[in-house]
C-alpha cells in the first residue's frame, strides 16, 4: 500500500471521529483500521534510503541506438 494512500485513509478516519457520529461499534472498527494504517505509515517512515536510478540518455555512449533505457545504478 503506497504511503500516501495509507495516510489519506488515516486522515479520513480522523475526519470521521471529528464529525463525531458517536457510534461506538463503528468507532471501534474505525479505530482498529486506523491502528493498522498507522502501522503501515510508521513502517514506511522507518525507511532510511531513497532508491536512485540513473537514466542513460541518448547522448550516453552506453545506448547507441537512440532509445532511452532505464539502468539501475548501484
Amino acid at each position: 500500500m503506497p504511503f500516501s494512500k495509507a495516510f489519506e485513509e488515516l486522515e479520513g478516519i480522523t475526519r470521521w471521529f471529528e464529525e463525531g457520529s458517536g457510534d461506538l461499534e463503528e468507532g471501534l472498527k474505525k479505530f482498529e483500521r486506523g491502528l493498522e494504517l498507522a502501522q503501515v505509515c510508521k513502517r514506511y517512515l522507518s525507511q532510511v534510503e531513497n532508491r536512485i536510478r540513473e537514466i542513460k540518455d541518448r547522448f550516453s555512449e552506453t545506448v547507441l541506438d537512440g532509445e532511452e533505457t532505464l539502468d539501475r545504478s548501484p
Binding site: F7, G20, L24, L28, F31, A38, K42
Partner: peptide, 22 residues
C-alpha cells in the same frame, strides 16, 4: 509525519474513550 501519525492515533483513542464514556 511520524509525529502527526502518533497524534492521529492519540486523537482516535481520545475520541473512542470519550465516546465510550458518553
Amino acid at each position: 509525519v511520524a509525529r502527526e501519525v502518533t497524534s492521529i492515533v492519540r486523537f482516535m483513542e481520545d475520541q473512542l474513550t470519550s465516546s465510550a464514556a458518553e
